[in-house]
Design a protein around this nucleic acid. Sequence first.
DNA 1: AAAATATTGTTAATTTAATCACAGTTTCAG
DNA 2: CTGAAACTGTGATTAAATTAACAATATTTT
Lengths: 207, 207
Amino acid sequence: MSLPERTVERLSEYRRSLLQCLEEGKTHIFSHELAELHHNTAVQVRRDIMFIGYTSMQRKGYDVRELIDVIGDILDSEKGLNVAVVGIGNLGRAVTTYFVGKRSKLNIIATFDVETTKIDRVISGVKCYPLSRLKEVVASHQISIAIVTVPADSAAEVSSQLVEAGIKGVLNFTTVPLDVTKDVYLDEYDMITSLEKVAYFVKTSRS
Amino acid sequence: MSLPERTVERLSEYRRSLLQCLEEGKTHIFSHELAELHHNTAVQVRRDIMFIGYTSMQRKGYDVRELIDVIGDILDSEKGLNVAVVGIGNLGRAVTTYFVGKRSKLNIIATFDVETTKIDRVISGVKCYPLSRLKEVVASHQISIAIVTVPADSAAEVSSQLVEAGIKGVLNFTTVPLDVTKDVYLDEYDMITSLEKVAYFVKTSRS
DNA sequence: AAAATATTGTTAATTTAATCACAGTTTCAG
DNA sequence: CTGAAACTGTGATTAAATTAACAATATTTT
């Protein structure tokens, strides 16, 4: 019933490029063009698009606007989802600024921190609440997704508070793997892993 | 000859946890313990470790320190690699701060930006150079990896300058896919894709 | 010291993902 | 109006990654 993770990722990536195309006034795009942009193959693109049941006008490529809409039907929730950023250090601030306004169906509507100096501060139009009010604010604002950017040593604690508060999806930018109940979707990203991967392939390509 | 990407990623993740174990004074760890930490299976862990040719003392679990060393032999370059962060906006600053000192074999030794107000500023001990001096500084400091955190509209240009300067690995945090020659290893990470993936699975788990 | 238990290492089976190969369309050139 | 060219959509195939299954080994229990 639900698409493979890799396909979901690629669809999101395609949309990003398609939105770019739209801005540039490009109305149609071929599978091999999308493929080249995303370092994969035309067949892969066509297969992904087949997956979501869209079919182009033959020989003219895909209609950019239509494809954006179809991907939207798959990826987006109709009413949008509300998102909170937990932990307003350097990374938390950067992430908040970065996300605000990027996608109309994903609204960053609160940030949280423990430090009293940060409470009530507004970052890119988003207000910072004390972590102690997490459950209450999550409920009143119907927040379903949390981006976690707290320091490593408070990550586990924060994670269980999020579950407790009824969060349904977590994006973890912390250096420690989190542990959530299995009704909560968890995605973990660690920059160090990415960088070490790059380093590994740089290393092996030379020897 | 070179390991699958996913395996490299997991090894990096395991090491992260192993370092944590070391700090906590834990000297041995079972495959199922590592598996649980990383949301995968004991078989998977054993297979990954088999891949790198390490074998534990039977029945006592893996020796934490030894395993860290073996993973290091695989992932790290003997003399370490030098890394630059290009683009010192919010994200660039956060990333720089985040990385400095995290891994002894990956040294962040320069940052670059175009804005004159940022030149010569020092972030977490790392100096900011004008982008115009890229090639020169990359050569003189033997920088082989670049982390790209510039705005979307200058990404393509920066990317070709990096290739030109002789960079061998790129980690792209920009919202546009880059295009590099194929002797350069490229890893792209877009937070929006991660967040959209979380949103998608939150959405589908409810319906 | 035999039996039961816990754990690794690895071969084989299975599942999942990616690629090939090609038929079916549309367009274009002559 | 015919044939070549340019694409897409998809069944078949191949390759890659994961999981299952179990023998081998060390430890503990009785």
